[in-house]
Simulated scan of single mutants.
Amino acid sequence: MNSPSRSLPSSGLPAATSVAIIGAGRVGGVLAAALRQAGLTVHGPFGRGETIPMVEVALLCVPDSAIADASAAVRDRVRYVGHVSGATPLDDVDFSIHPLQTFTGSESPDIFLGIGAAVAGRTPADTYLAEQLARALGARPFEIDAAHRAGYHAAASFASNFVLTVLDAAEQLAASAGIPDDEARDLLAPLIRRTVDNWQSMGATASLTGPIARGDEVTIARQRAAVDEADPALTSLFDALATATRAVAGQKAAV
């Protein structure tokens, strides 16, 4: 593959498309397995610094800070370079595809089926390639422009990372009430799932219940005192969440 050209078929992604996965972390291994399952010719995942074969596409599954160096290292061996970062611009790559999912590295390749995948490209052809890779995974591609990448990624952090912070606090408070950790998770999980289901179908404002939604400040004060007694480090989190939740309740009252 000397002097790689940058042509693409007019539609679809041929099964013979060759892809090298750079980075063997939580995403790289699962992504390689999923693309291989989709019938593409997949090499890797490779560790950073390893020499990759001549391929059409290199997908960088590396930390954001390593994208520039990883791209430069493979640029002369590929037609297209993409990354899977949600927030990083396209300065050093041709396209990006960000699966809107959380990964531990132990997932089945089927984890991509039906999920969203944020895509972007420097050119229409680059964007098209990202879309076709997303569809090969069984994901649903949607475009995010450069100006909104950080905001989109922050939304993902709120929906996943910050939720875990709140759930960890719930688990700690349940433990302070005498409920063992594993039992607390089993008891709280149905409440969490129902809350998410309600949010998905109706949105936060219509789904909000509890003392803040009722304007029950006496109960809220009791909760705050209990949090402060159990773990003062959680009090500021309780206060911040209560303030934000009052704003959600206010939207409900204004409807």
Rank of each mutant, 00 (worst) to 15 (best):
L90V: 13
A125Y: 02
A68T: 09
A70T: 05
V62Y: 00
P124A: 13
V74H: 09
V57H: 00
D92A: 14
L129D: 00
V78R: 01
I97Q: 05
F112A: 11
T41K: 02
P124M: 10
L133S: 07
D69F: 02
R75T: 11
E56H: 03
L129P: 00
H98K: 13
P124G: 11
A34H: 09
Y128P: 01
V62T: 00
R79V: 03
M54Q: 07
I67L: 07
G82V: 10
T102H: 10
L100G: 13
F46H: 07
G39T: 01
P45T: 06
P124R: 09
R77W: 08
S65H: 03
D76Y: 10
A70S: 14
P124L: 11
A134F: 05
R79A: 15
A72N: 12
V74K: 06
I52L: 13
S71C: 09
A87D: 09
R77E: 05
E131T: 08
V81A: 07
G39Q: 01
E56K: 01
P99V: 12
L90T: 12
L90C: 12
D76Q: 14
S85G: 10
A125K: 04
H83M: 07
P109W: 07
G49Y: 07
S106T: 15
A38E: 03
L31A: 07
V57W: 00
S108F: 13
A73C: 09
G116H: 10
L113H: 15
I111H: 12
G121F: 06
T104W: 13
G86K: 02
V93Y: 03
R48T: 08
D69C: 04
C61Q: 00
D92P: 05
V42M: 05
G116Q: 10
S108Q: 14
A70R: 01
V119K: 07
V57M: 01
G82E: 08
